[in-house]
Nucleic acid binder design. Sequence first.
DNA 1: CTGAAAGCGCTAACAA
DNA 2: TTGTTAGCGCTTTCAG
Lengths: 337, 337
Amino acid sequence: MAASMKDVAARASVSLGTVSNVLNHPDLVATSTRLRVEEAIRDLGFIPSAAAQQLRAGRAKVLGLVVPDIANPYFMEVARGVEDAALESGYVVILCNSDEQAEREDRYLAVLESQRVGGILIAPVRKSLKPLSRLLQHGVAVTLLGNAAISHDVCSASVDDTLGGGLAAEHAIELGHTRLVWLAGPRDIPRVSDREAGLMKAARSAKVHVTRIAAAQMTTAAGDTAMDSALANGLDATALLCANDLLALGAIRALNRAGLKVPDDVSVIGYDDIEFAASAAVPLTSVRQPKYELGYAAAKLVIGECEDPATHAHQRVQFQPQLIVRASTAPSRPRTR
Amino acid sequence: MAASMKDVAARASVSLGTVSNVLNHPDLVATSTRLRVEEAIRDLGFIPSAAAQQLRAGRAKVLGLVVPDIANPYFMEVARGVEDAALESGYVVILCNSDEQAEREDRYLAVLESQRVGGILIAPVRKSLKPLSRLLQHGVAVTLLGNAAISHDVCSASVDDTLGGGLAAEHAIELGHTRLVWLAGPRDIPRVSDREAGLMKAARSAKVHVTRIAAAQMTTAAGDTAMDSALANGLDATALLCANDLLALGAIRALNRAGLKVPDDVSVIGYDDIEFAASAAVPLTSVRQPKYELGYAAAKLVIGECEDPATHAHQRVQFQPQLIVRASTAPSRPRTR
DNA sequence: CTGAAAGCGCTAACAA
DNA sequence: TTGTTAGCGCTTTCAG
């Protein structure tokens, strides 16, 4: 067992309270005793127990980070930002991979509740805040990651997905494409629906038709499969917009297998601009999100609320996406070039 | 504040101890009272405080996962395995990104000590176990991730990197390459030195020369930079073996910029076989590691030690790597084909 | 400036 | 079968 404050007190021949003061209110302690206590702390390698501190404080300096896919480089960039912000403030991050399953998300939410975490950063599986309501009641700081806040009870840090979807669509339209395909994820992934809305709006106003197909998950494999069966069903289009880069990478694989060249036969646009988009078989045109910054800002937001719930006002931080044009998109009729 | 056991006891008009028994020894409680207590628990939405439980138990059901690069898909696959194993056993994972910096690793180790975590999974920045010794003394279960155990005080789960390095070298040699380049990471990254040793051994016994160059980090960007300057310095070789896939992906970018074609001019072999290796510009030949399984096994190992330190015997679990041949490698003189 | 003591939420030993 | 109690490590009054 690790040394406790009692051990330190004994070694420095002072009382428990004095040790605590050395740690938390050093100015209240006479220099000579302070030095003596600090020496004892060093000798014993004493590190205070976070659990005991928390038991008194009511809340732990712990953040829960709930993401739908830990293997997605997008979320890992976000996680880096969260982690850096947390470490700066002495917080620790519990990693929760909901795997896009509501049931798993619920399980983790219960775990985080049992841990009495101070704050939760969540890219929710569902649109509703219902699963979070208990936590909110108990005063846990929650901020939504990637979704604009649905309610006024929480902070959110997001990227303007409607704009992003529009950016992608407009790029395709400007290139002269008139039959767009939207490769979506499973129905009701919240962070995808805004992208779809933005895209549809842009398409409508340009009077361009959009065919919607859906992958079963937001992964490379699912993108491949979805594209495969769409092609088998006679799908024919010159521009493919994807709900994220993983889907795009998978879809390109399927297109290539079918003998279609990107971008000569089909232009492909991804979303997220993960690092690998640039080194993909065909460098991918994609809508970039400031991932690290998003995570960092979101974490600062929750931590702020944790530290000072009284004066905290809920905020919505929104970043702007940016279209990164690479080799996977080309004008609709290459010969006109 | 969340409901406590006291609240539950009051609502069910029983004593504290009875509530505890309902939770931990339901068989000792009369059915009727048990039902009453369970109802109170449900009504109040009571979830026990992990901190309080831990304070008694001495250790938290928490695992620290310390990895050098959270953005590396390799470690994220490992993390998925860890996380799944943890959740199964009611453990929670604190994510610690050491960023390949000893100082940051130390900081996290202190944090984990303060959290009184039950176990630590670590892919250490340094070779020595010294930074971990205090934790070990305090009875924290430690297992090394990716490195075979350096000492007998800890478990380890690893992949045979010596073999893997050999596999890569032999593949290049069989293809007829006689001038190999080894693109290593910064000196002393433990998990890389075994790969280098295996590779060098294979090269020696085939009497093949190896030029060693080193990237500043294990990232795509660093691989690109390192290759760039090596080429500028007149490096000339037909086969490039890389310490991981990220380096390989970056190096390929630099090669392409220099007008060199993969695999026509240079064969490239990566290491790890991350998912994107398959969809890279040139699908990458790589040494595959069972990443998820590695993480899962490692987590089971620590958890086993946490749960029952007395009967626990330290183990070394070692997985076998596998060479996955893709398009980035070709015989040394294409015309001889 | 320092010490003593209460209490955070829980478990386990013991009493009833 | 149920209740009572001590104590895990810490912070924070309140006395001295």
